[in-house]
């Protein structure tokens, strides 16, 4: 396999892990965030500092990067998740930028805006595939469990959820903390892939991209999120040779999806029997409607 193909697969894994985290929060718990790149940054810097300064082995370092992102998310989440809907989305922009600016200005620890060089290239093909496989396994299991149902009920109607005995505040924080872990690990892998990280890599544009991948794939569909992450990553990578038109194509893909399938590629369905049943019903319904049209 050429280095380039390998690189794309690694990047796919990294983006898919972060997108799964955001999907849990946005698609399944109904909390829109526009600051999740900050958790990637926390994970990336924690892991970089641990491996470079303290010589920690990269696997515990990556996990500690994810754990650090969880801690930051918990501290932020407990007071701010009282905000509902759009209000949290606005707050999350500010929170994300704050974390990025702290990293940029904490010169002694992060070397500031010049970036953090010399990270060991630990993110090989197998490491990234391994992390992706384990984390995808955990995530799909989680959404097909009592926790998945609890998250979805908090998303659909939080008053009804609390009157079914769910501590909705706790589930919202749990969802944020787990999504931060996924983003933290993703950021840590990105650092090991590029060997160099810079605060500007984790700005609002990256955050928006994460959320748009989830919306693109379908809110409330984990397999849709993976498809979305793959499409967006491939579109931006495959058209690198014509880089001046890259963002144009990226924009066009998003617009086409919005027009043709406003609910995202998969809607709320997983890639499974129910999705195909829904497709079948839709096509039979459309054709019968056409037949029934008065001539």
């Amino acid at each position: 396999m050429s280095g380039y193909t390998e690189g794309i697969i690694i990047l796919l894994c990294i983006n898919a892990i972060a997108a799964m985290g955001v999907s849990l929060l946005t698609g399944f718990t109904g909390i829109f965030s526009l600051g999740h790149a900050a958790y990637m940054a926390v994970g990336a810097y924690t892991t970089a500092i641990l491996t470079v300064e303290y010589g920690v082995h990269y696997i515990p370092a990556i996990l500690l990067g994810g754990a650090m992102a969880m801690i930051v998310a918990y501290v932020i989440g407990v007071p701010t998740l009282k905000l509902m809907g759009d209000y949290y989305a606005i707050a999350s922009i500010g929170l994300g930028e704050t974390i990025r600016l702290i990293l940029e200005n904490w010169q002694s620890l992060t070397r500031g805006a010049r970036g953090y060089p010399g990270i060991e290239g630990y993110t090989t093909l197998y490491v990234s595939l391994g992390f992706f496989a384990v984390m995808a396994f955990g995530m799909f299991n989680l959404i097909h469990s009592r926790f998945g149902r609890a998250f979805k009920s908090c998303r659909d109607d939080y008053i009804a959820a609390s009157l079914l005995g769910f501590n909705t505040a706790r589930y919202r924080v749990l969802s944020l903390v787990l999504s931060a872990f996924y983003c933290g690990v993703s950021g840590a892998l990105l650092g090991g892939f590029l060997s160099f990280i810079q605060p500007i890599m984790f700005d609002m544009i990256k955050s928006t991209e994460l959320t748009s991948v989830v919306v693109f794939g379908g809110l409330g569909s984990m397999s849709g999120t993976l498809i979305g992450a793959a499409v967006i990553t491939l579109v931006t990578e495959l058209f690198r040779p014509i880089s001046q038109y890259r963002m144009l194509i990226y924009g066009a893909v998003l617009v086409i999806i919005m027009v043709l399938r406003p609910e995202g590629i998969m809607g709320q369905y997983e890639l499974g029997p129910r999705f195909f049943r829904m497709l079948k019903n839709r096509f039979t319904k459309e054709s019968s409607e056409k037949e029934g049209e008065p001539s």
Partner: peptide, 22 residues
Amino acid sequence: LENVMVAMQQHHGYSFGEAITH
């Protein structure tokens, strides 16, 4: 069914670890 299951699960709990590993 899912609407009923989401209420039914209050009395049939299992841990987070069991949820992510099945």
